[in-house]
Amino acid sequence: MNQQYLTQNPSSLTHLDQTGAACMVDVSDKAVTKRIAVASAMLITRPDVIELINSASLKKGDVLATARIAGIMAAKKTADLIPLCHPLALAKVSIDFDCNLALGSIAIRARCITNGQTGVEMEALTAASVAALTIYDMCKAVDKHMEINSIYVEQKSGGKTGDWQKESEHD
């Protein structure tokens, strides 16, 4: 990291110390508040694959049930996967799916809740991503052209910055 940049912008990157070394943010002085984050991902496939998923006709079993469990497990392991994330005591993780037969898509939505000193955005993003990857893994034998995209935080609440929601492209 450019030392001149750090001198001019010392607080611009919270995961770097004054020398530019990576560091975990100290949250010990932050208030414990209820924190919620919702993240989404989109899996694009074919309508016939959606039909197979909805009818539980794939050889690997119930795709959405497996993806839901994988997403929940991933949220719980986020601090093991993302080096500077704080380990959190998650109070709730939920994963929902919206299968659109006409579009051949599955919208994945992960919601994480904790009472803590730091947010749960990374846990929600990890949950949505791993749920999408699990669907891909279980369906790749029937569609090698699937895509996973549009992974983002939809909204978050709690903490010093309060509530935030992603603006729609249509607003």
Rank of each mutant, 00 (worst) to 15 (best):
M1Y: 04
M1G: 12
M1P: 06
Q3E: 09
Q3V: 06
Q4S: 14
Y5F: 15
Y5S: 06
N9A: 05
P10T: 01
S11W: 00
S12A: 07
S12I: 02
L16Q: 01
L16K: 00
D17R: 00
D17S: 07
A21G: 01
A21K: 00
A21D: 00
C23G: 00
D26L: 10
D26K: 08
D26Y: 11
S28P: 12
D29W: 06
D29M: 09
K30R: 06
A31G: 10
T33H: 07
A37W: 03
V38R: 05
S40F: 15
A41Q: 04
M42W: 04
T45C: 09
T45Y: 09
R46C: 06
D48T: 10
V49G: 12
V49K: 09
E51N: 14
N54W: 04
S55K: 00
A56R: 02
S57C: 13
S57A: 15
L58A: 05
K60Q: 15
K60N: 09
G61R: 00
L64H: 11
A65E: 14
A65F: 11
T66C: 13
A67K: 02
I69R: 07
I69G: 08
A70H: 05
G71D: 13
I72R: 07
K77A: 14
K77W: 14
K77E: 15
T78C: 10
A79T: 09
A79R: 03
D80M: 11
D80E: 13
L81R: 03
L81T: 10
P83Q: 11
L84F: 11
L84D: 06
L84H: 07
H86A: 01
H86R: 00
H86D: 00
H86G: 03
L88T: 02
A89W: 10
A91Q: 08
K92M: 07
D96L: 04
F97M: 02
D98V: 01
C99S: 08
L103C: 15
G104Q: 03
I106L: 01
I106T: 00
I106E: 00
A107R: 01
C112E: 07
I113L: 12
I113F: 11
N115Q: 10
N115K: 04
N115G: 09
G116N: 04
Q117K: 15
Q117S: 12
Q117I: 12
G119E: 02
V120S: 03
V120F: 13
E121H: 00
E123P: 14
E123T: 12
E123K: 10
A128F: 05
A128G: 10
S129F: 14
V130D: 02
V130P: 05
V130I: 15
A131P: 11
L133Q: 05
L133G: 08
L133D: 07
T134L: 07
I135D: 02
I135H: 03
I135N: 03
D137G: 13
D137Q: 12
C139A: 05
C139H: 07
K140V: 06
A141G: 03
V142H: 06
K144P: 13
H145F: 15
H145N: 11
M146N: 01
N149M: 00
S150D: 13
I151Y: 07
Y152G: 08
V153W: 04
Q155Y: 13
K156Q: 04
K156P: 13
G159N: 06
K160Q: 02
K160E: 11
T161I: 05
E167F: 15
E167C: 15
E169T: 02
H170S: 15
H170L: 12
H170K: 06
H170D: 11
D171W: 08
